[in-house]
Each structure stands twice: as structure tokens, then as C-alpha cells.
Design a protein around this nucleic acid. Structure first.
Lengths: 199, 199, 199, 199
DNA sequence: TATGAATGAGCCTTCATTCAT
DNA sequence: TATGAATGAAGGCTCATTCAT
């Protein structure tokens, strides 16, 4: 009879899952290898059979998050839209995709988006990307030329950040729902009065 | 014979300042008592002359932030406005005050707003408060009745959070500047087209 | 189906060679089984197919050295010489043989002569043997009767030890060369003045 | 009542002594901090109160040996002698001093002369120094011009090495005694016949 | 003959905290 | 008010060795 998980890949996978969960729950430094291996039904040396070090697993997880996110974002670059409908629709779909991605694996999202020094970088890159797109649309006349798109991009990321942690990862809202609210808010704000734009 | 600066209150104050800075820089767990006392020109036992434990200093700092914030927010409750001008103006002034507060002591803000488990609570409370105010204004007809003000409040806090850490604490923007951008974004969004509200 | 080289004796031999090299290079404790098997193209359990333990391989190597050395030394016992020419010649040839042996397999020499607790014993035995021979020649009148042959023997071994590690194993000198120098030094010293022996 | 050794310098000194003894007895890697502190009547963290790391103590000990040895050797440079008596006497006194130094603190000698990678260097430097001196005397005509003084120096160090570990550190012989034997051996060898030098 | 998988035992190092002065 | 000295409790990592196949 095989020992439980006498299969390397399976053990590794289990360790990775548990590790992600622990890192997400407690942060990098508070996570103990002893807890990880114990939850994975193994002993400490086994951990080092599959990973170089504590830092290495963490990096692997961060990298996984980053690369998946990169693929998602690159696949959803906003080309210049044609009319307002399109712009809105595109934003809606991109955000839905993003929230769907962020909600898919809550441990990984926690790690890549909120824990560790790289999270700051990830979000900065996201801001930069969004800013580029917004500026393009702004040049095309869809958005008020006076807006500081860097600030807008920062705000959007702040919103995504908070909604992800408070609404998405807690299961209170769906990606579509969140995307709809965000689009609505960012497109038209909450006032019932039209903006007094510089004319 | 007293040592230079061998004044209890002064030593305590110095420890508190250094501790705040270390917590802000490195987070709770990465901050070492040895570093704090060393920077404060004292030795480890002295630390325990003024504070019960590492956790105690941290809590004291968090509490300081929370109480100051509480006073600020209570002093700036939005009473029902009278017209759009007022609503906008009030929001603008409240946000300016909030950013001013958050920018006043960056170490304390870091601690109370971003580090430690209480930060989550602080922000949730802020969300709740904002939500109340928004709902009141909504009832008064200033905002679209269909809007989910809980989500809007969450978004506002997310925006405040991010702008604080990325623009305010880095010295890139002033409180007024940030408040203006936020008000503009939240009131009217970025689209040049008016919202198609349900009629 | 056998794997390439899946011949027990061959694997064992490979392990032995690599082990000798690692022990020689890094010493007993710093040598890791994992390194040995990896260099031998095998896995850790295979090691235990051929050797009881880490200590066992080491002992086997030490024993190999000791037995070979023993054979060499026993075959070269100095019988009482007849005249000075003979004594000198005999010493020269014995030393040449010894250096040749020590230079033959540098890893084994390193292990048996310099590493591990047995090396001390090996050299002590060598001292004892040399001492016997020197004393015999001394009784026969070839050497000054006042000399403490135990010390002389110790010196000779010290010289052999150092020349082996610094000149022989580094390839700087040949066995013959070294033997000649040692004989010259031990027979007549370096002074140009004759010794003032007690008469 | 003071705790045993509630004096920093004393604790440090005790640790250093015990550490030296352990390193000398078991070598670097086999020496355990736990053993050192336990023998010094302390606990593990205390060790790190006085030393950076295990490696650091070791280095400190090695350095102590090296610097003391350096001072000794520099103070006893052989100036060109005047006649054979002088040369012999000088050699005798230098060797006596050296053996006295090597016998003074056997643990330190073990560490600096036999353990650790630096021991090899120490001895190489010693060879170089001796070689210089011998060559000078050789140029002055005291020694046979045909001798390879590098080899002679190597032999001398080999002899010192062995006599130190086997006779001096074991308490069997005194520095003077050993020096006398070495001088006699190196000056005139053991043969009763005079050397047939090239004429 | 060979290996994939796993582990018991152990070692170095760190840090918040305390005791005696 | 202040500190020199010390420690309990942990945590990351390594290595020789074994089990089941």
C-alpha cells in the first residue's frame, strides 16, 4: 500500500496549495514551514525535496500570479474604441475579466496583489497600463481632455484593490456585478447633475 | 547624576517616535525592539520601563491614529446639503481635511491605515460612515436612487487608500489637489457623455 | 532490461572512486553522500546497496591504503647494510618506493595519510618501523650512537608528510628527486662544516 | 548574589577558551555551539552576545594565532651570521622560541597550525620566510651552494609540524630539547661519514 | 540492480523579554 | 531612570539513512 501521496508531483502540489493558503492567511514572515508541511501531511525535510527555500515557494507563487495576470492584461489591451458604447463595453468586459481572474484563486490573489513587496510593483504596472489606455481614449475624444489620467488610473486601481478584497474575495459580489458598478461610477459619477465641463 | 535627556517623558516620546517609524517602514513583525531602542539611544530593558510589550506600543500608536481620525470624522459629518453646489463643496472640504490628516504624520497613517489587523476595521468603519452620509444625500435626491451606496463608499475608501499611499505620502500631491480630483471623479465620472439614468 | 552500466561491480567501483575523491577534497564530515552518488550517476539508496554506511566506505578506503602501504613497507625492510654506500643506497631506494606509492593515487594518499583518525596511527606505525631500522644501523655503527633515533624517525616522517602534500601530490617533484633530497639532508645535513661528534 | 560570571568580559573569555578547546579537539564543523555554551555555563543566545557567528569565533582564534606568530617570527629574523657557531646558535635560539610559542597554548596551536584552511597558508608563509633566510646564509657561504633551499625549508617545516604535534603538544619534549635535535639533524645529518661535497 | 519518496535527528541563529544592579 | 547580562522559545535548513516498489 502506498503511503499517502507517495507521488512526488502530488506532494509538491499539495505543499504549494497549503503554502499559498498559509501565506495568504498570515503573510510571509508569519508563515512557518512546519505548519505547511504538517498540513500537507509531510515532514520538514520533504519540503526541501520540492522547494529550495521558504522564499523560493513564495516567489514561485508570486510569479505564477504575475505571469497569469500579465497574460490576461496583454490579451485585453484596449484598442481605440469607436463610440461611447464601445468604450464602455470594452471597459466593462476587461474589468469583468480582471475581477474573474482575481476571484479565481483567492490565496494567489492575496499573495500577488496584497502580500509581499512585489504586490506594490504589480499594481504600479497596472496603473501604468491603464493610464496608457485612458490617455489614448482621451486623445480620441472620449474623455474630458482636462482629466489627469494618472490620477484616474490610480483611483481605478484603488477601487479594484478594495472591491477585490472586500467584495470579491469575501464572496459578496460577482465579477460582473463589480465591473458594472465600477464602470458606472467611473464613467458618470454619482451626481444627478451633468458635469460642467470646460467648453 | 542624570544622563543627558534622562527625562522619562522624553525617553518615552523618543521611543514612540522611533517605534512609529520602524513599524511604518517594516511592518509589525519585522520591527525589532533592539532596533527601536538603539535608534532611541537606549537599551532594551528601558523599553519595558515605558511599554508593556512590543504589542502594547503598537496598539498605543494605532489607538492614537484611530482616536484622532474619529475626532476628525465626527467633526465633519455631512449634514444634509441644500443644493449640488453645497454637496460638492462639502465633500471637497471633508476630503481635503481627511487627506490633510492622513498626510500630517506619515508614520502614524501607515500604521493605522495600512499595517496591522485594525487597519481593516478602521477602513470598514469609514466605509460605513460614508455610506450613511451618501444614503442620506441620496434620499434627499442629490444622487441617483439606483446607486448602491455601499459599493460607492467602498470605492471611495479604496481611492482614498491608494491616493494616500501613492500620491500623498510620497509628497506628489497636496490634500486639496487630491480632494479635487476625487470629487470630480466621483461626482461626474470621466465620460464626456451624460449618464443615461433610468427615468 | 539493464540500464547502461547496470553492473553491480562497476557501480560499486565508480562509487568508490568518487567517494575517495570527495573525501580527499573535502574531508570526511564535509563529504556528502548526495554528492558522491550524484557524481557517480546513481541515487542515494543505491549507495547503501554497496556500502553499509558513509563510515564504511571511508574505512574501506583507509584500509586499502593501509594494506598497500603495509605490503610496501614489509617488502622493503632494511637489512643491516655493509657499508655507507649501501646504507645510503638502501635508504634512497626505500624512500623512492615510498614516494612512488604515495604519489600513485593521490586521493587515497590524502585519505590514508592526512584525513581521519587512522592517519595518525598510520604515521605512528611508520615512525616505529623506521625507528627500528635506524636503531639497527646505529648499533652497527653507521650512525652516531648519541642520536635519539625516535626523534630522527619522527622527523623523517614529518618530512615525508610535508613533501608528499606540497611537492609530490602537487606534481612539482618526482619520487626520485624527493628521495634524493631527503637522503642527502638526513645523511649529512646542510652545513659545510663536519659535525663535531663526541669521540 | 551575582550569577556565575555575570561579567561580560569574563563570559566572553570563558567562551573563547572553551571554543578553542572544542575546535582543537573536534575541528571546525564538528564543534557545536551548544557544546561550547554548555561547557561555559551559558545558553546559546549568550554566545551571540559576544560573537557574530560560529565562523567569527573561529576566525578570531585563527587571527590571534597568526598575529602572535607573525610578531614572533618578525622579531627573530636571522641576520647574516659571522661564523658557523653563530649560525648554529641563531638557528637553535629561533627554533627554541618557535617551539616555545607553539607549545604555549596547545589549543590555539592546534587551530592555527593544523585546523582550518588558513593553517596551510600559515605554513607556506613560514616556508617562504625560512627559505629566504637559508638562501642568505647560503650566499654567505655557510651552506652548500648546491642545496635546494626551498626543499630544505619545506623539510624543516614538516619536521616542526610533526614534532610539535607528536612531541611538544603531548608534553614529551621541551622546546629546547626539540630545537637541539632539529639543529643537529639539519646541520650535520645522521651519518658518521662526512658529506662528499662537490669540490 | 535501481530509484522515487520520505524522515529522524540535529544545528545555527534570532528575538522578545527579564533579572539584578 | 537606566543598563549589563542572560535566556526561553522558536524557526529555517541539512544530512545520513530507510521503505516500498
Amino acid at each position: 500500500m502506498r503511503k499517502k501521496g507517495a507521488n512526488g508531483q502530488e506532494s509538491r502540489a499539495r505543499l504549494l496549495i497549503v503554502a499559498a493558503n498559509e501565506f495568504a492567511k498570515s503573510g510571509y514572515h508569519q508563515t512557518k514551514i512546519s505548519t505547511i508541511v504538517s498540513r500537507a501531511g509531510l515532514t520538514q525535510p520533504s519540503f526541501y525535496l520540492y522547494f529550495e527555500s521558504k522564499e523560493a515557494v513564495f516567489k514561485e507563487l508570486v510569479e505564477k500570479f504575475r505571469s497569469e495576470l500579465k497574460i490576461l492584461l496583454e490579451g485585453s489591451r484596449l484598442e481605440s474604441g469607436i463610440d461611447e458604447e464601445h468604450v464602455t463595453g470594452r471597459l466593462q468586459s476587461v474589468l469583468t475579466g480582471l475581477f474573474a481572474f482575481l476571484g479565481k484563486d483567492s490565496d494567489l490573489t492575496q499573495i500577488g496583489f496584497f502580500i509581499g513587496d512585489d504586490a506594490v510593483i504589480v499594481k504600479s504596472e497596472m496603473v501604468a497600463m491603464i493610464e496608457q489606455n485612458l490617455k489614448a481614449e482621451q486623445r480620441d475624444g472620449y474623455f474630458d481632455g482636462d482629466l489627469d489620467m494618472h490620477i484616474v488610473a490610480e483611483c481605478l486601481v484603488g477601487v479594484i484593490e478594495r472591491l477585490t478584497s472586500q467584495q470579491l474575495l469575501t464572496g459578496k459580489r460577482t465579477p460582473e456585478d463589480l465591473a458594472r458598478h465600477v464602470v458606472s461610477l467611473f464613467m458618470h459619477g454619482i451626481s444627478i447633475y451633468p458635469a460642467k465641463r470646460a467648453t
